[in-house]
Amino acid sequence: MTAIPLKKDPYSIIITGVGGQGNVLASRLLGSMLADKGFYVTIGETFGASQRGGSVMSHLRVSKEGVASPQIPRGRADVIVSLEPVEAFRVLATYGNPDAVLLTNTHPIYPVGVIRGELSYPPLDELQDVISRLLPASYFIDATEQALLLGNAILANIVMLGALGRLNIVSFDRENFHAAIGRRVAADKVAVNLQAFDVGYGMVQV
């Protein structure tokens, strides 16, 4: 594929989700694909205690010039990829702007307050309406459902990467993904990851 020029430098991508969803792997994969393409990539991650059921966020900065801040300034995310719908909204409110592109998994993971029946989780269609109104370029897919069909909910992160690849806003393709995943997972897991990537790729129309 021809390299897509950066619309901004640094170009800022957020991958978000809930602890345990494979957020960190997704950001490392995307980061190494872009580094392979010759970009400077800086990734800032929030994990650790926040892993235990909390929100997890990775900030990716892509640049031709050099290292960037591992934290994106507020309002400056160009792309938001979320493994969980409410997290997408949380990130969009802090880091979003009307030109940002948003791609989110629609499978909810309930916060404790919701599990306990003390708080309510917004209905998905309402969330979808509100997000699309704020950000015209938003895409919603049930990546977890597809991941489960492939045998493991954790693959939702890879389905999301596939969908991001289809959106053609960041420079990477299946071949880059193949190389990057090959460095990260055991050889016998590569095939199912590629499958997940392909499924995701097929889930969005542009």
């Binding site: 235990r52 059921g53 309002g75 400056r76 409410v86 409110a93 702007n97 009307p98 708080l119 704020l134």
Partner: peptide
């Protein structure tokens, strides 16, 4: 100014209304 004023205030208000916070819990 970090983000276009109207967008930021609207998004923030909606977030408070729609996004329940995530407390820390055991796995």
């Amino acid at each position: 100014e970090a983000a276009a004023g109207v967008f930021a205030t609207e998004a923030k208000a909606l977030m408070e209304k729609l996004a329940p916070p995530r407390g820390m819990i055991f796995c």
